[in-house]
């Protein structure tokens, strides 16, 4: 499947069909999920209506982490096999990933404002996500500042891999810091275990919806990138053909 899709032309064909499917699925899941989470599911016993923030927060956090894993994997593929489609994929994941990280932070902060009575708490998870946001911005900046695409792809791939190796260490250290150096927040973060089905149904719907939305965003970006690259290549072929080479011995 992956090798089959590795050809850009085949990927374009595949994307033409699958892209809209994801768009429709995303719209459907999110609409149904919103209706479920806002009207059908009950308020939670302790947290009240603020529990509904979880239906956006948890899927955002999930996408934020999944997007970075995809960036790291495509960075690896791009670095080792120099496959341009992997570059496109990694690059396309970055902006949605950063946006969902930001959304997870904002929703977390809103939830904190009612539960912890503060918009920002230096809680392990919030701190980790803030760091993740900086990592995303760093990764995107590399693509932004490097005009040479080959170099940008390789450096971005390396940085993504180094980031992926360090993420678990960062996560672990921040949790440690949260436990030892600073007082625990009284109520645990959203997504605590032991949720009943009335909460899980809208949560899973929203997760499916966000995943489809993310997939649609990535596929669309990759398609645009490939189209741009092909257009540039065809312009180049007209104006900038390789040099003619003549080899001759001296008389």
């Amino acid at each position: 499947m992956i090798t089959w899709l590795a050809n850009p032309l085949r990927f374009l064909k595949f994307a033409k069909v699958v892209g809209p499917v994801f768009a429709v699925l995303a719209a459907g899941f999110i609409a149904f999920g919103l209706w479920q989470s806002l009207f059908v599911s009950p308020a939670e016993m302790y947290q009240g209506d603020s529990v509904r923030i979880m239906y956006v927060h948890v899927p955002s956090a999930w996408i934020a982490m999944m997007a970075y894993s995809m960036i790291a994997v495509s960075g690896f593929i791009s670095y080792v096999w120099r496959h341009p489609l992997a570059d496109n994929l990694g690059r396309a994941c970055a902006l949605p990933g950063a946006v969902f990280t930001f959304l997870a932070l904002v929703t977390g902060s809103l939830w904190g404002s009612v539960t912890w009575m503060t918009y920002w708490e230096w809680d392990g998870r919030m701190t980790s996500f803030l760091i993740l946001l900086f990592i995303y911005i760093g990764y995107m900046s590399i693509w932004a500042v490097m005009e040479d695409r080959k170099r940008a792809a390789r450096i971005a791939g390396l940085v993504a891999m180094v980031g992926a190796i360090n993420l678990p260490i960062i996560k672990f250290s921040v949790d440690w810091w949260d436990d030892t150096l600073h007082q625990k927040a009284t109520i645990s973060s959203p997504g605590a275990p032991g949720l009943g089905p009335e909460f899980l149904t809208p949560l899973f719907l929203m997760m499916a919806g966000f995943t489809c939305l993310f997939a649609w965003m990535v596929i669309t970006t990759v398609v645009t990138d490939i189209a741009k690259a092909r257009k540039a290549a065809s312009v180049r072929a007209k104006t900038n053909a390789p040099a003619n080479v003549t080899i001759e011995a001296a008389p």
Binding site: K238, T239, A241, P242, N244, T246, I247, E248, A250
Partner: peptide, 24 residues
């Protein structure tokens, strides 16, 4: 241009493709 070099010289000449769009 080559100056006092007496050894066997091979020249490689790179020239920009003259006809735009004609090259492969």
């Amino acid at each position: 241009a080559p100056r006092g070099l007496t050894e066997k010289v091979r020249f490689i000449t790179l020239s920009a493709s003259s006809v735009a769009g004609a090259a492969v």
